[in-house]
Design a protein around this nucleic acid. Sequence first.
DNA 1: CATAAATCATACTATATTGATATGAATTTT
DNA 2: AAAATTCATATCAATATAGTATGATTTATG
Lengths: 145, 145
Amino acid sequence: MRISTKGRYAVRVMLDLATNNTGEYIKVKEIAGRQEISEKYLEQIISVLNKAGYVKSVRGAQGGYRIARDPSSYTVGMILRLTEGSLNPVACLDDDVNECERCDTCETLEVWKELADAINRIVDNVTIADLVERQQARIAGSYMI
Amino acid sequence: MRISTKGRYAVRVMLDLATNNTGEYIKVKEIAGRQEISEKYLEQIISVLNKAGYVKSVRGAQGGYRIARDPSSYTVGMILRLTEGSLNPVACLDDDVNECERCDTCETLEVWKELADAINRIVDNVTIADLVERQQARIAGSYMI
DNA sequence: CATAAATCATACTATATTGATATGAATTTT
DNA sequence: AAAATTCATATCAATATAGTATGATTTATG
């Protein structure tokens, strides 16, 4: 039941791009440096975000990435489902129609449904904008004695 | 974020033992047959339940397993954590003290905490007795026209 | 126009996990 | 003594994870 680095890093990339969004394009090298994540691994992860249109890229020298839309339009759930795949605890919940042969008498299915709902509710209730806000509150708080 | 067969099968074994608890010892072969799970694989899983004292065993001919305590004393969460390990979405939540170097400034940690709480709340809120009850309600319901 | 800096694309690798199967020892009833 | 069963390990194939490596492509700049 672990979230992999791929999904966690993707959330951190989006937060990094939102936090450092000056209008300029930000290089993978910079993000990797700040987040202490392997540059090459990050390239792969950001490429998924790019193909989904979550970020915009400019190639070549002085190129880089920036967040495509307002940070409030990206939930943590969207980013995790994009990079990790389904967040459902069992595969049979992924399809519109449950294909499992035992599903009619499966007593545990209800539990997995509740679990899936709870998981998705939590991660879809937090946006990148929320994380930026919390970060700023934390930094402001750290100046107080 | 998937629950593996090991954890899911363990819950089904406990439910099977609770449902078929006549006082007699039940053979792995019978459980495997009813649940359509590989006998040898089930042996491994039930061995974990046995070592934790969740089931009692008798060796030799006419031996088998039975549920150790009342089904209401086992939550799905207990069984999953025993067989799957921690249900926390990130490893840093497993320790009493967070060992992650970035945890002081980790904006996502709060989300993972909420997620862990939600997950554990759901699975700890359902006992094997609840599943037995639901099963019996379903069977009773199926006789109605 | 050449070069450097960047993204983009793909292949490769090492390790761990998953979901079993296989072999046989130990125990108990018949 | 034989059969039936749990118990203990070892092994295995497939997949996922977390990267690393190589190089092509694109673009700004000297």
